[in-house]
Design a protein around this nucleic acid. Structure first.
Length: 593
RNA sequence: GCCCACGUAGCUCAGUAGGUAGAGCACAUUCUUGGUAAGAAUGAGGUCACCAGUUCGAUCCUGGUCGUGGGCUCCA
């Protein structure tokens, strides 16, 4: 990239942040004007696409209030009040905000280690703030308030719930408009909306929240992904296993989940005087398979994969379509290996993850390596040597694959270091991608062993890994990534044959028979409707191939092909079309042709 | 779980200052046999989320429950 351009972008990002932060101050001033001096201010930072400000208010806000507050903000912007920075000793600042009865600000001041703090004033409004700000309120561009939401003071659910107003601002009205349009586009891609429109899945009150019903078309997409997943794992020397949905509570006591994960589990059920649990994870079952036999170092590594359905109790407020649910199927696998095999195994998993992400069209991602907090080593199970061995293996594996990564100190779970891949979708939004987690805890708790070349018993290393994560979340994400227009290999219906008149129906059926024989998922739209109507419907269903058949086509064993893109390819021989579609399926092409 | 908003036909939404409701799309029937994004007519379809309360009378007011959405928090 051109360096000058880069600098320019860098600078404008800083400016944008300054402007957004300044807009937050203007919002706060407007809210105080609107609701009076009993308003208590929380914090008001710039965020990725705008800004917010948290308030404790005498009453709750309605959407109409946002319009009034916006008007007041416009007046403040028009008045072009200068932002004036002032530095004062902590004690003095404390007194100032105590006088204003700004208890949250006083709390913030008490937490600032420096002796001098800065405040910014615009007009009669003053706020504790590190800055920087734009010179005056007139420098704030086009803005809009978007929503009101609840937010705990300092994110702590034991502290008061404040009202948060979200807004956004851009240098120009056009850029603001562009952003609002992107939000609309995200809304159009919403998997919940597309899930209904494309008849992929639903959630039923009667069944229960957070439980997904896969309709035939959604189930087909899932089936294709599962087939791909299984085939790819078998190809890479994994073995597949299957384990039940429930198991004895004692198993979860041994694993430790009952102690540290209980709030996320469904309560136990009593069967024949024994407590059973709906499984929140697959690992203990895989471990029991491991322990069903005495293992030799010659058996390792063992790679066992399962599309395992688990149930986790999620608090009602966090459920969201297919993305956050209470029952889901993980593409789980556990690798049991010797310590010196760890690096090679991690390389293999990274390679698999990259291949699968790329196949689904996720070509942008960030990799994070979660390691121990070096200052609090006592929080973690396992000694220094195992952690250093494992961290070293992960780092060497990443380097071997040439993957740039960010080291996240203190982000590791207590039981081992991990690699997390965050993918970006077509709209540049981040999604949780593949995860690779080393575990020193479970092999210990379950007393897992293998017999080494020396005839002695040794502890295996365990790796948990998921590439897709959960099928529900992954497919929900795919729906949004593709905006519902699945590539041919994934499309639940790949082709629809559209006869022009009743007399073309028999020919349409012969075309369908040929397509089905070739493994193409297709149907005939034989309704007594005009083709405009049928095309429109197929188009809305985002079916890749629309095959119109009339007298001309029937006479030469052809179909007139219209692609979902709107491109009309004209008449093509049936066999040629089949070849084309099959080649798209086999190559898992992301581009329709 | 917490804060706020919302819940009317399969879907998207109107509506009633309290007197048991309406549109468009979808669906059914009939007419139309039409060459690349909506042909026409007719019809069927709702315990206005559920449970209490106030009222002569509640879809509308009040309370509760369930669910959904935007957040907080958490995670696959």
């Amino acid at each position: 990239m051109d360096e000058g351009l880069f600098c320019l972008e860098e600078r404008s990002m800083v400016d944008l942040e300054k402007m957004r932060h300044s807009a937050a101050h203007v919002l706060a001033q407007a809210v105080v004007q609107y609701l009076g001096s009993t308003v208590k201010l929380g914090i008001g930072p710039a965020i990725e696409d705008g800004f917010y400000y948290d308030f404790e208010l005498p009453r709750s806000l309605a959407p109409e209030d946002l319009r009034e507050i916006e008007k007041l903000m416009s007046r403040i912007v028009e008045a072009d009040l200068p932002f004036v920075r002032e530095e004062l000793p902590k004690a003095e600042a404390r007194k100032l905000f105590a006088q204003l009865a700004q208890t949250y600000k006083v709390e913030l001041i008490d937490d600032i280690p420096d002796e001098v703090v800065s405040v910014y004033r615009q007009g009669d409004f003053v706020d504790l703030c590190r800055g920087p700000h734009v010179e005056s309120t007139g420098k704030i561009g086009a803005f809009k308030l978007l929503s009101v939401a609840g937010a705990y003071w300092r994110g702590d659910s034991d502290r008061p719930m404040l009202q948060r107003i979200y807004g956004t601002t851009f240098p120009t009205a056009e850029e603001l408009q562009g952003h609002l349009e992107r939000l609309e586009e995200a809304g159009r891609r919403d998997h919940r909306r597309l899930g209904r429109e494309l008849d992929l899945f639903s959630v039923s009150d009667e069944v229960g929240p957070g439980l997904i019903l896969w309709h035939p078309k959604g189930a087909m997409v899932r089936k294709v992904i599962e087939d791909f997943w299984r085939a790819e794992h078998i190809r890479r020397d994994y073995d597949l296993v299957n384990t039940p949905h429930v198991g004895r509570l004692d198993l979860w006591k041994t694993s430790g989940h009952w102690d540290w994960y209980r709030e996320n589990m469904f309560p136990p059920m009593n069967i024949d005087d024994q407590e059973y649990l709906l499984k929140p994870m697959n690992c203990p079952f895989h471990i029991m398979i491991y322990k069903s036999d005495l293992r030799s170092y010659r058996d390792l590594p063992l790679r066992w994969g399962e599309l395992g359905t688990v149930y986790r109790y999620e608090r009602s407020g966090v459920l969201h379509g297919m993305l956050r649910v209470r029952g889901f199927t993980q593409d789980d696998a556990h690798i049991f290996c010797q310590p010196d095999q760890l690096e090679a195994e991690i390389v293999g998993v990274i390679d698999l993850a990259q291949y699968m992400m790329q196949t689904f069209g996720y070509d942008r991602y960030d990799v994070e390596l979660s390691v121990r907090d070096p200052l609090r080593k006592e929080k973690y199970v396992g000694g220094d040597e195992v952690w250093e061995m494992a961290e070293g293996a992960l780092i060497r594996a990443l380097e071997q694959k040439g993957v740039p990564f960010k080291r996240m100190e203190g982000e590791a779970k207590f039981y081992g270091p991990a690699i997390d891949i965050k993918v970006k979708d077509a709209l540049g939004r981040p999604w949780q991608g593949p995860t690779i987690q080393v575990d020193f805890n479970l092999p210990e708790r379950f007393d897992m062993e293998y017999v080494g070349a020396d005839g002695q018993r040794h502890r295996p290393v365990m790796i948990h890994r998921a590439v897709l994560g959960a099928l529900e979340r992954f497919i929900g994400g795919l729906i949004e990534h593709y905006a519902g227009a699945f590539p041919v290999w994934l499309a639940p219906v790949q082709a629809v044959v559209i006869p022009i008149a009743d007399r073309h129906l028999p020919y349409a059926e012969t075309v369908l028979a040929r397509l089905s024989e070739a493994g193409i998922r297709a149907n005939v739209d034989g309704r007594r409707e005009k083709i405009n109507y049928k095309i429109r419907e197929a188009q809305l269903q985002k079916i890749p191939y629309m095959l119109v058949v009339g007298d001309q086509e029937a006479s030469v064993q052809a179909v007139a092909v219209r692609l979902r893109s709107g491109e009309n390819l004209g008449p093509i021989g049936v066999e040629t079309l089949i070849e084309k579609a099959v080649s798209q399926m086999e190559s898992r092409s992301l581009k329709l042709s």
